[in-house]
Design a binder for these strands. Structure first.
Lengths: 206, 206
DNA sequence: CGCGGGGGCAAACGTATGTTTCAAACGTTT
DNA sequence: AAACGTTTGAAACATACGTTTGCCCCCGCG
């Protein structure tokens, strides 16, 4: 067939492994081995490891950003929206817009964390170029939701929130481990993300 | 001399390079070259690259945690402290307890971000084992500061805050770059960290 | 039927890495 | 001054990596 499922198999494997072990620590051999395809397939279909990394992000981010953009345009039409609504929409979309379980979302947030903390400059530039518009649209809506917060401070606080979210969802398993050891409580991922919302809202308000 | 400054030179170089490029992406050759020492010196003095990574963290974290622990014990004696005071103390100590400029602190937060997002399991275990006690002491004090927040939620929100802080200070330069491009404003690192405090306090209160 | 090309495969290539080796240089002690 | 343990030095080692190379198969078109 013209476009085999080899591409998808590679992307699936790469997504999980990159999230588990990081970009540099994941070899193409580990990816192709998990995907059950030949080593050369990566360079054949994607050109390079760097391009594969970008492709992994693109496959996840494009549908999400399109969905978010649509929702945001809706909200723009309806006039002012409050903080809870805005973050609620983004959160529901991020966790559920992919049909499959939110496990996928968690994997992706781990990827984002790595993209941010490691200096994958090419990736940062790529993300900024392709998805910066949606981010700015979101920021503009936020501004109308909390006009009492100066734009510059709002901008910073949104980044703080992004940090809390990415960091939390990146280290979800270790968070669950610790909470079990220190509090004798099993806590679901859903509950953690649910707690994230009031924290973010409270932080943005200051 | 019995313990030469080679060890310190290596630690200095490793600290900066690890923060700049990540652990896996930084070769021992890059480190020893920057330090002006022989390649074999790392394995001679530290045993392995992994041990070097731990040593970098230890050199920074041990003085900080000792200082923090002392301050916290003081506060315990003085009865209840409020949120602003607790986070203020921790923040001042983290940014200034090392004599030298807060640049050092920023470097270290970048390191922390990488330690968290990459699955350096050995590092996570090491940090937990050596510095978990201080963290628990801090958490206990927080509990008395906001008794209205259930312990479990407080625990989560502290982690959210940690995420915001680490994420922010990790990506400080890119944050400054963006703010300059989008807001035409130069923003100092000090101002960003200063904005971090009300965000964290607001988030913890919910 | 032939044959042309897209995709898959094993193998090899060049390079960069962490680590080891062993001899030379150094400083301290006797 | 001689002997010793500690530290440095240049070089080599084994390995793992990303990438490239040819050769094979197989399907669709002439």
């Amino acid at each position: 067939m013209s476009q085999s499922d080899t591409v998808q198999r590679i992307l699936d494997a790469a997504e999980v492994l990159f999230a588990q072990k990081g970009f540099a620590e994941t070899s193409l051999r580990a990816i192709t081995s998990r995907a059950g395809v030949n080593l050369a397939a990566v360079n054949y279909h994607f050109g390079s490891k760097e391009a594969l990394i970008q492709a992994v992000f693109e496959r996840y981010l494009t549908p999400f950003c399109q969905a978010l953009d649509g929702k945001l345009q809706e909200l723009e039409g309806q006039g002012a929206a409050d903080l809870e609504k805005l973050f609620g929409v983004a959160s529901r979309l991020a966790l559920g817009s992919h049909g499959d379980e939110p496990r996928r979302a968690m994997i992706f947030f781990r990827l984002s964390g790595q993209a941010y903390s490691q200096p994958q400059d090419h990736l940062r530039a790529y993300l900024r170029e392709h998805y910066g518009a949606v981010f700015r649209r979101f920021l503009a809506l936020l501004r109308t939701a909390v006009p009492e917060v100066p734009p510059m401070e709002l901008f910073l606080r949104v980044h703080f929130s992004l940090g809390a979210v990415i960091f939390t969802l990146s280290g979800m398993e270790s968070l669950q481990t610790i909470s079990k050891k220190d509090f004798n409580t099993d806590i679901t991922a859903a509950r953690i993300t649910q707690q994230l919302l009031p924290f973010v809202v409270g932080g943005i308000r200051g």
